[in-house]
Design a protein around this nucleic acid. Sequence first.
DNA 1: GCCAACGTTGGC
DNA 2: GCCAACGTTGGC
Length: 144
Amino acid sequence: MAGRSHWLVKSEPDAFSWDQQVANGIEPWTGVRNHMAKANLKAMKKGDRAFFYHSNIGKEIVGVVEVVREAYPDPTVAPDDPKGEWVCVDMKALMPFKTPVTLAAIKADPELADVALVRMSRLSVMPITPEHWTKLCKMGGIKA
DNA sequence: GCCAACGTTGGC
DNA sequence: GCCAACGTTGGC
């Protein structure tokens, strides 16, 4: 499909890991409390794909997920949250990377120097350009 | 365990 | 509205 966007989402495996995503199948991606990340979540369309990145432990891209439900109110937001409304999307595990792509490998590649993961390390949901998507899929040993 | 980056908070 | 202090995240 034309115009499909690509993303990268981060999770600490202690909190929510790729294995859990695979085991659960479809899983709401909740807990985002950052405005830039929220804007990215809202921009996701059904059918968009995202890399699943393990932060802190592993520090590597471990698989690909697909957006199966577009942004809706995050049920984990406290009713009295002064920040008001946050959103989440539903993700489905699509396929694992044959070879996880580590942060070190991404940093070591000049072509990937401007991937948001490197430049804005604290952002938990970020867009990935088509070029970077293709390259990272190749590095992960899967077809884009 | 430390430190850098960055968002948020609170005093003014 | 500015800016310093503080808390959180995430890499090392």
